[in-house]
Design a protein around this nucleic acid. Structure first.
Lengths: 149, 149
DNA sequence: TTCACTGCAAACCTTTTGCAATTCT
DNA sequence: AGAATTGCAAAAGGTTTGCAGTGAA
């Protein structure tokens, strides 16, 4: 069993969520996917495996995984992908949502997640120039991954 | 007439778009708003002014303004706001979409737009560590503006 | 056994499409 | 006049809600 699946199941258990068949199916699917998926894309992929899960359940499972910080939501298209970066990471503790930056390949859709390191000076600069008190942020990069170059 | 309205009208004319009553109403409304607005929010605000514009037209007007880089789209909620930063700005020329960073107040919704300055070192770092070739990015900050502090 | 979770039906909200009528230039 | 734009009707998507039945702990 992959690290992600194991971690996801443990976190759900710890937080008193039940380990159900539909939840396991969605977790397994997200674990295999290199791209972010929409609710309907998840449904279609499960369907084609002969695993029928209602679309409403998929929405609720995504909510559940998001609450448990087990998925990222890509803002530019509202799809979700597994979050592999550990829950011990600073951003998980202090931010309202995962601020791990996303690198999105415009050709194949592959997404890589990276830590927030390096953004701190930008935040300081922006706070200084704007008189906003910044609490959190969202940063998505779009480009071409090494396999597509 | 405000700078924004004047600029918007000029740019539409330059690009062979017509200056119609509904378009002027939306431009004026966006000019006055400190928050980003959804299509239906625009419709409701115009309605309450006694100006009836069909929701379909509002969608099409937003598209038109977006193509002309006269509005930003806030990714986190898909609303639009006027783009005040000049068309001579680097980002307008080279990026696929406006990369002006947005500062969004979590209390009152006010949005401030700022230049991309300061992000370049982060992009270099990310490219170096990831072997992605970065083309563009989107960065939204969430916090509290000075009036709400 | 109990309560969380799922599935189904239906509602709801947002966005898009096609076409005829309108109105800018 | 001619072409772009609007308004209307309708469809298409995406997401949410309520409730009864199911299944994990």
């Amino acid at each position: 069993m992959s690290d992600y699946i194991e971690k996801a199941i443990n976190i759900l258990k710890e937080n008193d969520f039940r380990i159900t068949t539909p939840r396991k199916l969605v977790i397994k699917l997200l674990d295999k996917s290199k791209e972010a998926l929409s609710a309907y894309e998840i449904k279609d992929k499960l369907d084609s495996q002969g695993k029928d899960v209602d679309i409403v359940s998929i929405y609720r499972i995504i909510d559940c995984l998001e609450k448990n910080k087990l998925v990222h939501r890509v803002l530019s298209n509202s799809k979700v992908m597994k979050c592999q970066i550990g829950h011990e990471d600073e951003c998980h503790k202090h931010q309202e949502y995962h601020c791990h930056h996303l690198l999105i390949c415009q050709k194949c859709g592959t997404i890589e997640e990276i830590h927030c390191a390096g953004i701190a000076p930008v935040i300081k600069k922006v706070e200084h120039e704007s008189s906003f008190k910044i609490k959190t942020h969202n940063l998505e990069f779009y480009g071409v991954c090494k396999s597509c170059l």
